Amino acid sequence: MTAAFAVIAFTNDPNVGPVARAAAKRGQNITQAVEAYRVARNLNDPVLQRYVKWMVNISTGDWGLSYSTGQPVLTAIRNSMKYTLFYLVPSVAIATVMGISFGLFSAFRQHSFSDRLVTAVAYLGLGIPNFWLATVLFSATVMEHQTIQFPKLPLESSLLWSFDFTLLYGFVPWIDFNTTQAFFTLPIIVLTTALLAGQLRYTRSESLEYMDMEFVKIARAKGAGPFRVARHVLRNAAIPLLSLFLTEMLSVLVLGILVIEEVFNIPGFGSLMLRAVGARDMPLILGVTMVVAFIGIVGNFLQDVAYTVLDPRVGSETD
Rank of each mutant, 00 (worst) to 15 (best):
E35N: 10
W174F: 10
S271P: 11
D13F: 00
F264A: 07
V229Q: 04
G268E: 01
I8Q: 02
D212Y: 10
L286V: 10
P173K: 08
L85W: 02
P154D: 15
L302T: 06
G296K: 02
R204C: 02
N300C: 10
M143C: 09
A22Y: 14
V92H: 00
I295L: 12
S205V: 15
A33F: 05
F184N: 11
V89T: 10
V121D: 04
L234E: 08
V142G: 00
A120C: 04
F184E: 11
T75M: 07
T308I: 13
Q71V: 04
M98A: 12
H145E: 10
I100D: 00
A122P: 01
H145L: 08
S59D: 05
G256K: 05
Q28V: 05
K217A: 14
L85T: 04
L137T: 03
P14G: 09
W161R: 14
T180H: 07
E144G: 11
Q146R: 09
T203P: 00
L160D: 00
A182D: 10
L255K: 11
E261V: 07
I58A: 15
T192G: 07
I30G: 03
W161E: 04
V56F: 09
W161Y: 14
V292D: 02
R228S: 13
T193E: 01
S243L: 12
W54S: 11
F10R: 01
I218A: 13
G278P: 02
T289A: 09
Q181I: 02
V121L: 15
L159H: 08
R21I: 11
Y202I: 07
V263S: 02
L186S: 01
N29W: 11
D45T: 14
R109N: 15
H145F: 11
P90V: 06
P151V: 14
F301V: 02
W161T: 15
N15K: 07
L274W: 06
G127R: 12
P90R: 08
A9C: 12
A20K: 12
G170T: 10
M143S: 14
L133H: 09
K217H: 08
G256Q: 03
S68E: 09
G170H: 13
R280P: 13
S66R: 02
A24R: 15
M282A: 07
V47M: 12
H145G: 09
H145D: 02
S243Y: 03
S112T: 15
V314C: 04
I94N: 05
A95D: 00
H232P: 06
L250Q: 03
E317T: 14
W63D: 06
